[in-house]
């Protein structure tokens, strides 16, 4: 008998179904983007596959009407949960003028949308970390009770910006949630070659904040950890570091061939733990999700993805004359 874990966390059946639906939507959009890339229709894909549980679990633990998200390039699950739509993501994939992220000015995966409090990062990794700290400092000064969630890969935890940002947040007890999505590879470099410590969460100690490692394939475990961190932040107790461990199921990007640096068996083994399947199984075992319901959900998502693809493919590119726009204030 499967234990109902979400009820204990205060999550309704509807909410966990919504979590699953968001994870699945992210996966299907991502898969479509790969197809479009291989068909020569979009230039680049950088994937969320394997990390949807951590992304969606974290986002659902926040107040998505006031908290801030500073995602990294894999966080499709985070931005979908924060209100970005399939159509908007597809516009970004096609680099069309209507793309709310940047109007096609940045690469896909550089998520930003003012109305949903999603803050765009830069291409060198980890720039978003001190931005999140600055936003949290602003919130503290203005006595607002939002928290900022900043996510990044385990590779980013080696960058100076991570350490500078974490230290500043620790010194000023700022409401920042640092969430590392440890997918075990920084492009081709495995964790064993990246970290001198055993876990990324070990790094929290140096910055005066709690650090924990959770199963990144379990959206409920991530939800619980982020919820606690958000409560701490709102109560003025300062930042937290959460390491969500999962696996990158695709190559680094559409321009990468991962067969040169990892074994097929390793990837296959990781697929057995894919959260899309394990969370679906959990929901079915509890009778919340039936085969019929899941099919309905799949159909509805595919319809969304198809519509988004068609719309984005037919949307206009930015006019070349607009290169002069937005360089300085008009």
């Amino acid at each position: 008998m499967t234990e109902n874990r979400h009820e204990k966390l205060g999550l309704s059946d509807e909410q966990v179904l919504d979590m699953y639906r968001t994870m699945l939507l992210a996966r299907r959009i991502d898969e479509r983007m790969w197809l479009l890339n291989r068909a020569g229709k979009i230039p680049f894909v950088i994937s969320c596959q394997g990390q949807e549980a951590a992304q969606v679990g974290a986002a659902f633990a926040l107040d998505r009407n006031k908290d801030y998200a500073l995602p990294y390039y894999r966080d499709m699950g985070v931005v979908l949960a924060f209100g970005m739509t399939a159509k908007e993501l597809m516009l970004s994939g096609f680099a069309k003028a209507e793309d709310p992220n940047s109007g096609g000015r940045q690469m896909p995966g550089h998520f930003g949308q003012k109305k949903n409090r999603i803050v765009t990062g830069s291409s060198p990794v980890t720039t978003q970390v001190p931005h999140a700290v600055g936003i949290a400092l602003a919130g503290k000064m203005e006595e607002k009770d939002f928290v900022s969630l900043v996510t990044f890969g385990e590779g980013s935890s080696n960058q100076g910006d991570f350490h500078e940002g974490a230290n500043f947040a620790g010194v000023h007890k700022l409401p920042v949630i640092f969430m590392v999505e440890n997918n075990k590879y920084a492009i081709s470099v495995p964790v064993s070659k990246q970290l001198a410590c055993e876990k990324v969460s070990d790094r929290a100690q140096g910055y005066g904040m709690p650090g924990i490692t959770v199963d990144g394939n379990d959206p409920l475990a991530v939800y619980e950890a982020v919820k606690q961190a958000a409560d701490r932040g709102r109560q003025g107790e300062g930042p937290s570091l959460i390491e969500a461990v999962s696996y990158r199921l695709t190559a680094h990007s559409s321009d990468d061939d991962d067969r040169t640096y990892r074994e097929k068996e390793e990837v296959e083994a990781a697929r057995q733990e894919d959260s899309i399947h394990t969370f679906s199984a959990y929901l079915r075992e509890l009778g919340i999700l039936t085969e019929e319901k899941e099919q309905e959900m799949q159909d509805e998502i595919m319809k969304l993805v198809n519509e988004a693809t068609d719309y984005a493919e037919n949307a206009a590119y930015a006019e070349p004359e607009t290169i002069f726009n937005y360089v300085y204030a008009e």
Binding site: P130, G134, L137, A138, D161
Partner: peptide, 14 residues
Amino acid sequence: SGIGGISIGLALQG
């Protein structure tokens, strides 16, 4: 680098 990055966050908040 942290000073620069934090400035960006503060400026985004007005």
